[in-house]
Amino acid sequence: MNKPQENNTWLFEISPKSSLFDFKFKEIWRYRDLLLLFVRRDVVTLYKQTVLGPLWYLIQPLLTSVIFTLVFNGIADISTGTVNAFLFNLAGITIWNYFAECLKATSDTFKKNENIFGKVYFPRVIMPLSITVSNLLKLGIQICIFIAFYVYFSLSDKAGSVSMYILWTPVIIFIMGLLGLGLGMIISSMVTKYRDLTFLVQFGIQLFMYVSAVMYPIAIVQEKLPSYVSWIVEYNPLAHVIESFRYMVFSGAYMENPTNDFSILNILLMLGISFIVFLFGLIIFNRTERNFIDTV
């Protein structure tokens, strides 16, 4: 047979080993059109669904918010200062939902796309990335409702005032997306090994919400609970992101003693953490994508 021409350059090589930190950013960039088309697909199919489909994105946060208001503010009597309790909860839920949706949707990437992944190759990470981007649409819908209620309540002066820091909102959303994506990628890789993990994810997200200051300010936890419990919330990065968002929209009017404790350093720290989670997720994800089709 022919002798291979060793001295010539090869375009690429497929071999059993690859570097742990080979993130293949270049390849992802080459497939950017695919990312956009996946996003487009998600958006178009959402729009083409039955009436109840898109409507669900309105009903779900509103109902949750009503129940939280009844339970946490009505029964448990958590104070939200001059801010209307319903609006306060809606703010937390809106931003939390984006994280939860991203995490939920990306966590079964491998299982859900087994069929297509088994036949064609493209950087698998395009899939969770596109989910994170297209979830922005749902977030957009929910933010619109939030704004509507915000305007309504501010007429009766129950909404505090918008702070200057509102300009940081995109960063907050970016952090939430990155965290959801990173954790989702880690979980999706584990799901290829343990299929029943999906049920745990549903449950876990719910539990996680209760320690993420979605329906109460962090300060209340510090005040009411002993320190061996409250640290869970205090050291939960998500709690801080949500708290920051609320501070931005209400200027801290929900606190007993409104203080100017919005910290940009804090946000940058969260940004750093979410980047680390994302990179860690990407490494695990890339490891899994190589051989997962053999194990599913």
Binding site: L11, F12, E13, S15, P16, I116, V120, Y121
Partner: peptide, 26 residues
């Protein structure tokens, strides 16, 4: 088509590989 990786050995290519494994995927 890079759907899975080999246990041993290498594939070297001078061109892009595209596969037509069961059309209509996606």
């Amino acid at each position: 088509s890079k759907v899975t990786t080999p246990t041993t050995g290498t594939i070297r290519s001078r061109g892009r590989i595209a596969s037509l494994l069961e059309v209509g995927t996606g």
